[in-house]
Write a protein that binds this DNA or RNA. Structure first.
Length: 299
DNA sequence: AGGTGTCAAGCGTCC
DNA sequence: GGACGCTTGACACCT
């Protein structure tokens, strides 16, 4: 089991997702920002490796305006060797990588233009992982999308659109249960039709639940990671912020809840992404708890 | 230097 | 039909 956190490291003091306003777009600004972002990304990965944090989500802002028409700069060519260097570090250290395009990426949209932009955005995400020469166990997680007043039609549209995507893209995509529209069963249904692995999100499942217990959910989702090249399943874990609105993530990990989660999910093996605000701090705590847990099992 | 309104993108909900 | 939340940081403009 690898444990990690998404996108931001609060300790190091650099950001791998710096961006700027469209109004201030220029090629030199873009170039400078990308360089800073990927330099920072390598620093974060080194920081993580030194602390046994072997799972990381790369921010979608690594290359600002990557799929925007304003950007016709050849950033892939310009930074190919930098990406390769990071990829080498990732592989050497056995780091698992995910990416998560934001809510504008909708392959089941009723609008053709939204679909087309979404494909471009997905291709951007895949090109990052390709430039790093990572295997297809590095995943891009998306949600099923909108309902558009007819869930069955919208599910079918997802299936149809997904099937037409390039194979190189399909091999990287996984679908995650969301907090309102497509629950675990909906994702499993999609998976049964197109073979896409299902990334189980524990927190979303608690808000948008099916009858499945945590253990059953792991069983159901794990089965969908059935290609050797997918590697072990990814799972998103977070606890809710008890002081804030119901959908907000917690500030720091509730370690007792996390231990309970580890017990609940035995004997399944998977990699856990901690969607918690204090990022690397909670990851370190979770890794410590998991190691203690293993020692207890051995003893 | 510090404060703050706003940011490429969509959908669903609420009024 | 329009504003707002999502989830949240930080850019960029203002003073």
């Amino acid at each position: 089991m690898k444990i990690g956190y998404p996108c931001i490291n609060w300790t190091i003091g650099c950001s791998s997702g710096s961006t700027f306003r469209l109004r201030s777009y220029s090629e030199s600004r873009l170039k400078k920002t990308i360089k800073n972002n990927i330099d920072c990304l390598l620093k974060i990965l080194q920081f993580n490796a030194e602390r046994n944090i072997f799972f990381f989500r790369i921010t979608s802002d690594l290359v600002p305006f990557a799929s925007h028409p304003v950007n016709n700069f050849n950033w892939k060519g310009c930074f190919a060797s930098n990406f390769k260097e990071i990829g080498d570090f990732i592989k050497k250290n056995g780091i698992r990588i995910s990416m998560h395009p934001d809510q504008f990426t909708l392959i089941n949209s009723v609008r053709e233009d939204v679909f087309e932009r979404s494909v471009k955005e997905l291709e951007y995400h895949a090109s990052i992982l390709d430039l790093m020469q990572l295997d297809t166990d590095a995943k891009i997680q998306i949600h099923a999308g909108g309902v558009y007043d007819n869930k069955q039609h919208s599910t079918d549209r997802f299936v149809e659109r997904f099937s037409k995507l390039d194979n190189s893209l399909r091999l990287r995509l996984v679908v995650e249960n969301d907090d309102r529209l497509y629950n675990l069963n909906d994702c499993i249904e999609i998976s049964n039709k197109v073979g896409v692995p299902v990334l189980f999100d524990v927190f979303h499942h608690s808000i948008n639940a099916t009858a499945a217990s945590t253990n059953q959910a792991l069983q159901l989702s794990s089965r969908t990671w059935n290609k050797k090249s997918d590697s072990v399943p990814m799972v998103d874990y977070s606890s809710r912020n008890l002081n804030g609105p119901s959908r907000q993530h917690a500030d720091s990990i509730d370690i007792e809840d996390f231990k309970k989660f580890l017990l609940d999910t035995e004997p399944f093996n998977f990699d856990v992404m901690l969607e918690i605000k204090d990022k690397e701090k909670s990851a370190a705590k979770a890794i410590e708890a998991a190691n203690q847990d293993i020692r207890l099992n051995i003893a």
